[in-house]
Design a protein around this nucleic acid. Structure first.
Lengths: 204, 204
DNA sequence: CAGAACTTTTATCGTCTGATAAAATTCTTG
DNA sequence: CAAGAATTTTATCAGACGATAAAAGTTCTG
């Protein structure tokens, strides 16, 4: 009687298009200002498709963010095989490159982190807290034993993120391309020098 | 016949309330997502007052941003009497303190800098370009002669801004207050050490 | 204190938003 | 190839948006 029929392949296709489009729109405009119609148009599908494939705009946002953080984790994985200064240097280089290749990540983080919300709580609990402890302990044990981990983490993430997250500003400002390979390499080199050089004098 | 009558004092009062409320809302939500009704409610006035005192939501935004950058300029002015490392150190300390006291500035910059727009063009032309050249030349002449100014500028601004701009995230993450005086001082000290220490080896 | 100028308040406009229901289509499978 | 499930399309809802017009209220000035 009941013929089975599981989810069809085309479902995964439009789901994927919607995730990519959602990342682009949420990164450019922020959650509230990004409209489901603009996301659907960018994905090349009709607007109600969003509510067919995702329960709500919020769930689309979470799925898109999960998707992007999964890529970040995959990118950083090779560095976890190393230790000490080697690991830190490799992590910085991979992170800076990822930020340039996927500016959506830090743009979405910045849009959300400017005011308290359920989305921010979800972000911190699911994708930030563990990363914070890992990164902070790397800095503390490698070169900055006496610096507040909270300060270290945001100083590094800010220093590593803004160039690519604010790339449209940098383009308008200089006419150059902030995500160009030569710029990214210079950026990573500067960050490595900064984060691996201990402060001149220790506390008295 | 025509009795004169200039703008009344109460006009300046509500204008000021609207500017403060606009900064808070634009910083928390971004331009599009911040509603004129929310701004008016925060200012304690009715929504059409916005269009009485400002030609449009855009003009309110520009007036609020001008207001805030004027405060930044006034804050940084004392450092301009100095030169060399002293000037750089003083500028960093004043900038970090200002960012903590007025997180709206870097939040608004981050909301706008993530996608090209007329507002971003206006921001760069009116408030960023000159600052970029001043700051970059300070870094280049003081400790980083061989580093790309574009990289230097965004690395510093990012390192100096994110801790306060993303304070809601930092609070959720650590339960601490990222704008506390002790944290701000530690942050400024770290930035000064980083920006005033030349990279270990020069280019071959 | 009267009248004109300034400011605030109320009511309302057309447009866009996220979401839903139902019809139409496409795909899968027996 | 026919039946049924999965997906897409069309049409539409109630609510929020920025802005405007007109009425009401307030302040200043002669």
């Amino acid at each position: 009687m009941s013929t089975a029929s599981r989810p069809q392949p085309r479902s995964e296709v439009t789901r994927g298009h919607l995730l990519d489009a959602a990342l682009a729109e949420f990164a450019a405009s922020g959650f509230e200002a990004a409209s489901t119609r603009a996301i659907a148009a960018r994905a090349g599908v009709h607007q109600p498709q969003i509510n067919y494939h995702f329960a709500s705009k919020d769930e689309l946002w979470r799925a898109a963010v999960d998707h992007l953080f999964a890529r970040l984790d995959a990118t950083l994985a090779p560095a976890e095989l190393l230790s000490g200064r080697e690991r830190l240097e490799r992590t910085i280089r991979l992170f800076v490159r990822f930020a340039a290749d996927h500016p959506e990540l830090n743009r979405i983080m910045m849009h959300e982190a400017t005011s308290a919300s359920e989305r921010l709580d979800w972000l911190v609990d699911h994708h930030v807290r563990e990363r914070f402890h890992t990164m902070a302990s790397m800095f503390v044990t490698t070169a900055h034993a006496d610096v507040d981990p909270l300060v270290l983490y945001y100083t590094f993430v800010g220093a590593a993120s803004l160039l690519s997250a604010n790339a449209p500003e940098g383009r308008r400002l200089t006419g150059r391309e902030p995500t160009a390979a030569t710029v990214v390499d210079a950026h990573a080199n500067l960050l490595i020098a900064m984060m691996l050089t201990p402060p001149p004098g220790d506390l008295p």
